[in-house]
Structure formats: structure tokens, C-alpha cells
Design a binder for these strands. Sequence first.
DNA 1: GGCTTGATGAAGTAGATGCTTAAATACTCC
DNA 2: GGAGTATTTAAGCATCTACTTCATCAAGCC
Lengths: 102, 102
Amino acid sequence: MNHQALAAIASDRRREILRLLWQTERSAGDLASEFEISWPAISQHLGILKVAGLVRERRDGRHRLYTANPETVGPLKAVLTSMWEADLDRLASHAEAEERGK
Amino acid sequence: MNHQALAAIASDRRREILRLLWQTERSAGDLASEFEISWPAISQHLGILKVAGLVRERRDGRHRLYTANPETVGPLKAVLTSMWEADLDRLASHAEAEERGK
DNA sequence: GGCTTGATGAAGTAGATGCTTAAATACTCC
DNA sequence: GGAGTATTTAAGCATCTACTTCATCAAGCC
């Protein structure tokens, strides 16, 4: 565990990315299509996660495939899992509020 | 565990504060004397830690005494301990570098 | 080679963060 | 109640962060 890893998972966006990459390997573009922000933004987050050692990159033709690194993410699993649940709750209540606000 | 807690411990300074408060109860001023930054800066960090639920405040006369909240810090203990070690290592190597640089 | 697709790099910007100093509040003691 | 001490609040500033758009690079296809 290092500072960069902690800073990396302190960001909502990067936790979302990490959650997807924990489940399955994905290309940067595939990943970007899940979010409403630009490709370069995703690319920047991936760079931060990579420097922190939380994700691994593998090249396959013109794709770069990313996965969560079990070695480094493993020890954080408990924290991340509880955060992911909190994220989902938060998203749900946000959606409800939007609904009410209409 | 909530977002605020994670953001709170992502800061080097706040982890240092939390480390001191994990060991013993301290007043804000006592705490401030351990650092080279101003009292208000410490107060602001304490406010963030308090909102995150990581520290508790108790008033005693004209002092306000702070402690780490075992309920919320407990689950983070593993992460924090490893970070505290990393912090100490980092400080040590920083000091060495300073020494060499003279 | 030249075009297309997948992805990163570079430069700029708005908003958040960490600090500062100065002013205000809360409590005690006389 | 007035003075002094402990601490927070307010306002302002510099730096950092997350994002944007535009430019560039790398690999495969014809």
C-alpha cells in the first residue's frame, strides 16, 4: 500500500473504473463508453491507477486491455467493497431525488 | 465507511493527525504544536476528520479534546497502519536526503 | 504507402484544496 | 462584567485536480 494507491481510490470516478476492471478485463475505449466523460479523461485515470499499481495493462493488437491487479487491490478489497456499496446507495438515492425533482 | 472518511485519510497531514489522536487524546492547540502549520489549518483538518466521523470532540473547560473514534477508525486500522509505516519510511528517507544535500 | 481505429499526450480552464492572516466566538477567572 | 486564553470562522491566495479539446502516435487493413 502506498500513498498513490490511497489517493487513487479516494476518487469516486476511479473507484467506479476499478469496480468494472475488478469484474472483467476491458479495453480503454470499452471502459470509456461506460462513462459520460471523454476518452482522454479515462486514459488519465487509468494512468493514475497504473502508477499506483492498481491496474495492469496488456497490449493486444491496437487495443490496450486493463484489469485490476489482484495483488494490490486484494488487500483493499474490504474497503473497496464497502465503498462500492456506498457508491451504489448514493447513486440510487441520487436517482430518486432526480425523479422527485421532475 | 463513507466517501468523506476515505477522502479524509487520503491526506498525509490528516493521517499524521489521526495517528497522534489514535495514541492519546489531545487538545487542538497541543496538536497544533506538533506541526509547523498554523492553528487554523489544524482546526480545519480536525473539522474534516470530525465530519467524516473519524474523530470525536469533547469539551473540557476551555479546551476541546480530540480522540480518534475507534468505531470508525477500527475498520480502517489495517490500511492506516500500513500507511503510517510508509509515512515514517518516507519521512526517514526524506530526512536522509536533506542530510546528504547539505 | 495511406486510411482508419484505438489510445495517449499536451495545453488550457473551472473548481476544489491547503494554507495564510485577521476577526470572531466560547469559556474561565478575577 | 472585563480580561485573557483556546479555538474556530472568514476571507483571500496559490497550487492541485478533473476535465475539456486538439494534436499525435501506433497497429492493422487495403
